[in-house]
Structure formats: structure tokens, C-alpha cells
């Protein structure tokens, strides 16, 4: 397993299982990135990893605290915890729900923006609330990219619409096209920039 240079952070809520399955099925096998997912779900829904693993050859695991982020892996936020990016590791927190959600998509996205700056793509999928909108804005502000599921194709359009309503510069696409799009965004990323900045370690200051 090698440390990831690029990060794809995905947020979804209502209708998320089906959406994630379809997204993962079209992610290029050799995408040089890790995928980290925050989905709102019930407390006992710990079989999400198993269900998603049927749609991708990448290992799909629920995150543990301080686990290294690995290329070619899908890391899932466990129910009842916030998932944050800490340098090149995952960190969990039981801090209270943020705008009624734990995991909170905004919490994941904001910490990803902080740690991976321009080497993050934030993806907002179906959902019946507005989580992820603020986080997506932060990602783009720090030089990362944004993708939003085409609201017309979403099981619930509130979340994609809320993300777009921020006016953030995002690419809108149906699920099946998001994987290939990630491939283009990440491989076409200027090489020079890659080495110029590594994930900010836990000692970095604000």
C-alpha cells in the first residue's frame, strides 16, 4: 500500500448506497488516488462496506483512527463518527453532530481542503439536506476541484442543488460519468505542482 498523493472526497445522504455503487463501478481501476466517503446513515448500517465492495475491485473499508490513506482504497466514515483528514492519515472524532449530521460531509471536506489543498476533488451526490455545500466551497477556495451529481439524476436533489446554489465552480455530471471525469482531473493535474506540496502534517499551523 502506498500513500495517496490525491484525494477524492465524496459526500452523500438519502439514496447514497445506489449512487455510490454506480459511481465506484466507473472509477478507473488505476486512478492514482484514494477515495474517502462520508455518507449519512443509520447507526447499525455497518454492512455498507460489503455492499459497495461488490461494485469495485478496490478494497472498501470502514476507517479507523489514524489509519494511513492509501492509493486505490475506498475509506468509509463509520456511522456515528466524524471522519477527518489529518496529514496523510484518517482521523475520527465523536464531537457532536454538525448541522444534525455525524459523519458530517462538511467536516470531511474542510479537513481535506486543509490537508491536501489543490490535490482534492470534492464530490457531492444525492441527499435530502445541504451538507457538503460549505465544504465544497472550501475545497475550491484552496485550489481543489468540485464535482456535483446532476440534480436531475439524483434520488434526492436537495444536496446537489444546495452545493450548486453556493455558486461554486463545479462540474455537473451524472453518476456514470463522474468516475471517468475523476480520471481526467487527476491525471491531467500539472506534474510540477505535485512535488511542490505534500499533505500538511499534523504539526502544520493555520
Amino acid at each position: 500500500m502506498s500513500a495517496a498523493d490525491h484525494l477524492v472526497v465524496v459526500g452523500c445522504s438519502w439514496g447514497g448506497l445506489d449512487a455510490l455503487s454506480r459511481l465506484l463501478a466507473h472509477v478507473p481501476q488505476d486512478l492514482p488516488a484514494a477515495i474517502v466517503v462520508a455518507q449519512h446513515r443509520m447507526h447499525d448500517a455497518s454492512y455498507l462496506a460489503e455492499l459497495l465492495a461488490r461494485h469495485t475491485d478496490w478494497p472498501v473499508c470502514e476507517a479507523e483512527d489514524k489509519e494511513p490513506i492509501s492509493v486505490g482504497h475506498v475509506h468509509l466514515a463509520p456511522p456515528g463518527y466524524h471522519l477527518l483528514i489529518d496529514g496523510h492519515r484518517l482521523a475520527l472524532s465523536t464531537e457532536g453532530p454538525v448541522r444534525h449530521s455525524r459523519p458530517s460531509i462538511d467536516v470531511l471536506f474542510e479537513s481535506a481542503a486543509e490537508a491536501f489543498t489543490h490535490r482534492v476533488v470534492g464530490v457531492v451526490l444525492t441527499g435530502a439536506n445541504s451538507d457538503g455545500a460549505r465544504g465544497l466551497v472550501r475545497i475550491v477556495r484552496r485550489g481543489g476541484r468540485a464535482v456535483v451529481q446532476d440534480p436531475a439524476t439524483a434520488a434526492r436533489r436537495d444536496m446537489p442543488e444546495a452545493a450548486l446554489a453556493t455558486g461554486v465552480d463545479a462540474t455537473v455530471a451524472p453518476l456514470e460519468e463522474i468516475g471517468p471525469l475523476l480520471g481526467q482531473m487527476i491525471t491531467s493535474h500539472p506534474q510540477g505542482e505535485r512535488s511542490s506540496s505534500h499533505p500538511q502534517g499534523e504539526r502544520s499551523s493555520t
Binding site: H82, L84, I85, D86, A91, S93, E95, V107, E110, S111, E114, A115, E202, R203, S204, T206
Partner: peptide
């Protein structure tokens, strides 16, 4: 842990 400290 920094990220959650930063948030708070």
C-alpha cells in the same frame, strides 16, 4: 489531534 482541534 489537529484537525478536530482546528475545527473547535
Amino acid at each position: 489531534a489537529r484537525p478536530s482541534l482546528r475545527r473547535r
